[in-house]
Amino acid sequence: MQDAPNGFLSEQPDTGNEEKKKTSAVVETIQQLGQTAVPAPAESNIFCMTIIGQIEGHIVLPPQNKTTKYEHIIPQLVAAEQNHKIEGVLIVLNTVGGDVEAGLAIAEMISTLSKPTVTLVLGGGHSIGVPIAVAGNKSFIAETATMTIHPIRMNGLVIGVPQTFEYLDKMQERVTRFVTSHSNISEETFKELMFKTGELTRDIGTTIIGSDAVKRGLIDAVGGLGDALKELNRRIEEAKNGNKEGRV
């Protein structure tokens, strides 16, 4: 480049392709992350799964919804269960609910993982988020987080026959049974919260906040990220020690 005739000098000094790539990578991180240094990816033994927005099931929701797609979450859980490097799963929830089948499928998958699982409700864990929130080995809720418990509503064509009610009642029962068998809340309390009137403006049901959820036995403890990770690491250690003892 130095030998190039006058007027044809490249504006940028030629420092080789490698260097260019490096600078463009730096520029990219500045543009995307607002900082130059990205922390080096260290191998983590914890897999963090976030369940946000609407839980999308059999129907693709319009694009204004932020969705968690169950067809991705389910194989992710299978991969986490199979992967030897992953020793525990942290599930972070901030969801407004969604498809019953998809939500229950995720909840069942989480509850049957053999690796330690800890769930953390941040912001909100409403409707079908409730069974997911209680599916882990231990559940945490942030002090300000809320959970809305309300009855399932029918959408689509409703045929005005008694069977419709029975069907809806059965669907309701699936959620109730999962929640009561995976948390310390009694069926009576859960149903009482679900059918309470005068709490929600447009619906029947209840919104419970942080410590309230713990008081009623729905969630195990009030806590944040630190508490959840500490508990998960404790459980991972416990599982490791248990395995060692089992082998001897």
């Binding site: 099931g57 609910g97 498809d99 019953v100 309300h150 399932i152 509503r153 689509g156």
Partner: peptide, 16 residues
Amino acid sequence: MILYTSMPLEVVLEGV
């Protein structure tokens, strides 16, 4: 499909 959500259905399904 049953949508069990605390969000109003018309908001969720707008533009479906």
